[in-house]
């Protein structure tokens, strides 16, 4: 079955993730969620291209990207918890205290 027509929708999902990072620069949690959305779109694209090109390496790299997504969310959320404990908020405005 020709499944190329699904690709623009998944690319749109990728752009939604990037737009979520850029448009809402207030909340660290939403930025992490947007990163998850981006990695999800990348994963779906990889497996779709593995299907289209008849190449299983895409599936294996999708498994690797899944691992990266899990490790990224674990460490990113741990950093978020530590930041909340120190600053008392999850706003990104406090991240540039180091600049002054």
């Amino acid at each position: 079955m020709d499944s190329r027509f699904i690709l623009p929708a998944i690319i749109f999902l990728f752009f939604i993730g990037i737009g979520g990072i850029i448009l809402n620069r207030r909340n660290l949690l939403l930025m992490l969620i947007s990163v998850e959305l981006i990695l999800l779109a990348v994963n779906i694209q990889l497996s779709l291209f593995a299907l289209i090109l008849d190449d299983l390496i895409g599936v294996i790299i999708a498994l690797l990207v899944l691992t990266v997504a899990a490790a990224e969310s674990a460490i990113g959320l741990a950093l978020l918890v530590v930041h909340y404990r120190i600053r008392g908020s999850i706003s990104t405005d406090l991240l540039r205290l180091l600049k002054n």
């Binding site: 498994l63 899944l66 691992t67 899990a70 969310s73 674990a74 959320l77 741990a78 918890v81």
Partner: peptide, 20 residues
Amino acid sequence: DVRFYLVAILFIIFDLEVTF
């Protein structure tokens, strides 16, 4: 408590191990 969060992280890690 934060400990629930640690348990969830360890669940993720070993979930992926089983997946592999």
